[in-house]
Every structure is written in structure tokens, then in C-alpha cells.
Design a protein around this nucleic acid. Structure first.
Length: 466
RNA sequence: GGCGACGUGGCCAAGUCCGGUAAGGCAUGGGUCUGCAAAACCCCUAUCGUGGGUUCAAAUCCCACCGUCGCCUCCA
């Protein structure tokens, strides 16, 4: 089976065939770092992390690059408000974003280029576009001549007439055409600026991604990703710039994630709801956000609210429950082991079929939950640790492809606590034999407070970390 | 005004491209187990926004309408 991938350019699912047989080049537009990241940014990072992980599961080597936009109007405005240096402010948010990515278990990219560190490459590209008369300079500003690109609009499926009909186009006499966009902006007071052939200034927004992608991944890439809010104008302009410069097709597959809806008053901070990544991570582990996001289609809008978060917490607990140790019984129904082995295969095949279909993570999760159920049934039937463990390994592997950690917090205790817990469980058992319910429940409740859950099964009690 | 997306059980949501009688999770109710509890297991809960049309057959195709949302020069 081949992986099918939805391409915004063709508006259809296409078989995934990278430019080179086993290697995938993937460039994803990262955030403009002028404020704390919110869960929508995290959604994008998680979506493309899962795409990467699945392609790796499928045997590809993935070269993943994500940029940080640290030179931008918003950064400058924010820095001026706070009386800080724009690049320092951006650097601070980049460090936070890095920490978030780690906490969210997003695999490290090959490179995280920043605009401020790629000025030379950007200037080189802008110069090249001017030489080809695709761009023109006016009083220290450089604009891309949209009319020079016959294909302009083919990603967002618009044409220039439609764009010009749009009410929001600002009129600027210095541009040849209202749709022309800035490649380089002349310096204004109190802005970070770099020397260039057109005087001091800074790059426009779109050119950075063309230049960075070229610099780090080469002229042609396989996947270009980002939020669907970037389709126009950002990605449209990237295509225009890159292809005008290299005379080659830029990205083979354009992949866009849907927007997370941080809707309504329910999301306000005053009600205690979280939507910043750091606030979210204060209350929940990263896996919760993953489950929440992966339970839906990455291309569709996703509503984020407290109820959905709670559902994700429970769903995650259920998956973790599948990893609980075996509680073997003397008599096991015949066929339990082979049934579980078969169910494991079915789950893996279903998982792959779903993921092959444009990374249908919600469908894939369905198969994972089915596997959890099978494991639980086998455990309830009394299957021994080893055959149960095989199914659990598959569960770990598949959830790992989705980037779930499934960390059980027994680490807080450390192995050395185990004999003492065993002792307490044993004491409680003695108390139960003596029908000293109050005391035995006290032990159970206090252990629960400490994060240890006792469960009374047919063959006596077992315990696990919560 | 233009381009596009979405509307499936109480909630989230897969399935829609390749039509054949609705995955999964959460919640609820009932049951098994149990001193109680927890967990687990078993059972129950939908005809797919509305109205037409095509078809032996439609959540899936076509038309219209309603509703929600995104983008239209710098937001993942």
C-alpha cells in the first residue's frame, strides 16, 4: 500500500512518491514569535510531527525543517510596546517554543532557521529576482511583480482579477500592481535593519521561507506544510518566488492543517480555561493535547474547549489502561492467546490502512482502542504476562507512531518503593481478612492519595500507579 | 462581493473522493465481579442540517436552501 496524501494544490489525495526514493524533504512554516504560543500553534506542530513519524514508520528518512519568523511587524510592534529589543524578545519566545515542542514530544527538526540568521540568503534571492526582472526596487523597497508569474494563484485557486476585486487590497502608488508584494522593506526608525544593495532594510514576510527552504533543503522539496491560513498569500507567494528563482517546481505536496477554534467566552482566561500552551501544560500532560487533536481530521477545524479536553483525558487513561500488567488466572479460556494475537494483527493493519489514507489519525485511534479492548479482555480472562506483553508492545509501538508517550507516573516513586507498597497492600489484605474495613480502606485511600491505585481482582489485589 | 471548509447519537468524531443499509472515544442507564470502591468485562442508546432529484440501493452522487467558520497582503 502506498500512502495517500491530500494536496491542496490539486485538491485531491495523491499517492505519495517523494523526489528521491527513500528520503523526504519537509518544510513547515513555524510561528511568528511575538507572543506565547497557543494550542493552535501546537496543533500544527503535532500534526506535522505525526506525518513525519508515520513516514518514518513507513521506512522513509525525513528531513524536517521548521522556521521561526523573528523579524516581522508584529515582533517589532510588541517589542516597542514592551521597550525591549525585538530580536531578544523573539529569542525569548523561541526558547519557550522549543521547550513546548519538547514537552509535546515533537521530534526535533533537522534545522530551525530564523530570519535574522538567514539575511544573506534572502538578499541573494531577492537580487536574483531583480536580475531576472521579476522583482523591482522603489525607493529602497523591493516588490515582486505578480504579473510576471503566469501561474500566480494556482495554489489558492484564485486569479488576479478576483484578488483585485477584493476590497482589502491597499492602494500603494509605488507598486506597479496592487497585488505585488514586498520582498524587502526599507528601514524605518527603531527597527532592526540590515545592509543590502537597496539600502538598509529588512526582508518581507514571504521571501524568508523561500530562502530558508532553498538553503536547508535545496531547490525542490516534497512536502510543504503549514496552517491553512497561510495558503494565501504566504504560500502562494512562496511558490511565485521560489519557482521564478529556480525555474523548477518548488514543493510536490502542499499540506495544510485546519484551524483550531478557540471559540467564544468559554475560552476566556477568567473562566479558568487554558489556551496558551504553557497554561495547558501546567494542567495536563502533552499526550492529552495529542489525543484531542488526533481524534479529529487534521484538515478540519477543531473546537477546543474544556469538555473536549476532559474527554481526551479520559480517552488517554483508557489507552494507558491497556498497558496494565497481566493478572494471570489458573484457568484461561482456550484460544485466548491466539485470539489476542489475531486481534493485534488486525489492529496493526487497520492502523496502517487509516494512516495510509491521508493520515487518518482518528480512524487509527479507533483501531488502537479496539486493541486496548482486546488486551483488556485477554487480561480479564487471565492471560499470562508474556502473550499479553506482545500485544502491549504493539500498542506501545502504534501509539508511539502517533507520538504518545503514555508515561505512567510511577517514576515519581522509583523502583525502591515497590517492596514497601507491596507490604502495605499485604497488610491491607490482612485487615480485610479480619473484616477491619475502616482500616483497610484507610490504607487504600491513603495510597491512592500518593498515586497508587489498588484493585481487588479474583486472584487477590494488584496495584498500579495512577 | 470572491475563494474555500464544515454541519453524523447527550458531547468529540471516523466513514463521503471509489454509493450497498453507520468505527472509536467520552458521558448516561442496566448487568457481571465486589464488604464497599476502583478498574475491567457484557448489554442498551443515531438513519447522518433541510428540501428535492438520480439509482435496485445514498451519510456517501446532483440541485437548491439553511446554519457555522476560515481566507481575500503580512495569523499555525
Amino acid at each position: 500500500m502506498t500512502v495517500m496524501i491530500y494536496n491542496t494544490m490539486t485538491k485531491s489525495k495523491e499517492p505519495f512518491e517523494p523526489l528521491e526514493a527513500d528520503s523526504v524533504k519537509m518544510y513547515v512554516c513555524g510561528p511568528t514569535v511575538y507572543d506565547n504560543a497557543h494550542v493552535g500553534h501546537a496543533m500544527s506542530s503535532i500534526v506535522f510531527d505525526v506525518i513525519r513519524r508515520y513516514l518514518e514508520y513507513r521506512g522513509y528518512t525525513v528531513r524536517h525543517v521548521m522556521n521561526y519568523t523573528d523579524v516581522d511587524d508584529k515582533v517589532i510592534i510588541r517589542a516597542n510596546e514592551l521597550g525591549e529589543d525585538p530580536l531578544e524578545l523573539a529569542g525569548k519566545y523561541i526558547r519557550r517554543y522549543d521547550a513546548h515542542l519538547k514537552a509535546l514530544n515533537v521530534l526535533p527538526a533537522e534545522a530551525y532557521p530564523r530570519v535574522s540568521q538567514e539575511i544573506d540568503q534572502i538578499i541573494e534571492m531577492v537580487s536574483g529576482l531583480i536580475e531576472r526582472e521579476i522583482a523591482y526596487e522603489v525607493e529602497g523597497d523591493v516588490y515582486f511583480r505578480v504579473s510576471s508569474d503566469e501561474d500566480y494563484g494556482r495554489l489558492s485557486h484564485r486569479n488576479l482579477e478576483e484578488l483585485q476585486a477584493g476590497a482589502r487590497l491597499r492602494v500603494d502608488d509605488r507598486k506597479e500592481d496592487p497585488a505585488d508584494f514586498a520582498l524587502w522593506k526599507s528601514a524605518k526608525p527603531d527597527e532592526p535593519a540590515w545592509e543590502s544593495p537597496w539600502g538598509k532594510g529588512r526582508p518581507g514576510w514571504h521571501i524568508e521561507c523561500s530562502a530558508m527552504s532553498l538553503h536547508h533543503l535545496g531547490e525542490q522539496i516534497d512536502i510543504h506544510g503549514g496552517g491553512n491560513d497561510l495558503i494565501f498569500p504566504h504560500h502562494e507567494n512562496e511558490i511565485a518566488q521560489s519557482e521564478s528563482f529556480t525555474q523548477k517546481p518548488f514543493a510536490k505536496y502542499w499540506v495544510h492543517n485546519g484551524m483550531m477554534q478557540l471559540s467564544g467566552e468559554a475560552m476566556s482566561k477568567s473562566t479558568g480555561n487554558v489556551f496558551n500552551v504553557n497554561e495547558f501544560l501546567e494542567s495536563y500532560e502533552g499526550d492529552v493535547l495529542r489525543v484531542l487533536i488526533l481524534n479529529a481530521s487534521y484538515r478540519s477545524p477543531l473546537t477546543f474547549n474544556e469538555e473536549v479536553v476532559e474527554q481526551a483525558v479520559r480517552a488517554l487513561d483508557r489507552i494507558k489502561g491497556g498497558l496494565r500488567p497481566a493478572t494471570p488466572l489458573a484457568k484461561i479460556p482456550s484460544g485466548t492467546e491466539t485470539a489476542l494475537a489475531e486481534a493485534t494483527d488486525v489492529a496493526r493493519r487497520g492502523f496502517e490502512a487509516s494512516m495510509d489514507d491521508d493520515f487518518n489519525t482518528a480512524g487509527a485511534l479507533g483501531h488502537i482502542f479496539n486493541l486496548v479492548k482486546e488486551i483488556n479482555q485477554a487480561r480479564t480472562a487471565g492471560l499470562e504476562a508474556e502473550p499479553l506483553g506482545k500485544a502491549q508492545e504493539t500498542l506501545q509501538e502504534l501509539t508511539g507512531v502517533l507520538g504518545l508517550k503514555l508515561s505512567v507516573e510511577e517514576m515519581i516513586l522509583g523502583k525502591e518503593a515497590t517492596p514497601y507498597i507491596d507490604l502495605l497492600v499485604e497488610v491491607r489484605q490482612e485487615l480485610r481478612q479480619a473484616k477491619q474495613w475502616e482500616l483497610s480502606d484507610l490504607v487504600r485511600d491513603r495510597l491512592a492519595d500518593l498515586g497508587i491505585q489498588i484493585e481487588d481482582g479474583k486472584e487477590g489485589p494488584t496495584w498500579h500507579a495512577i
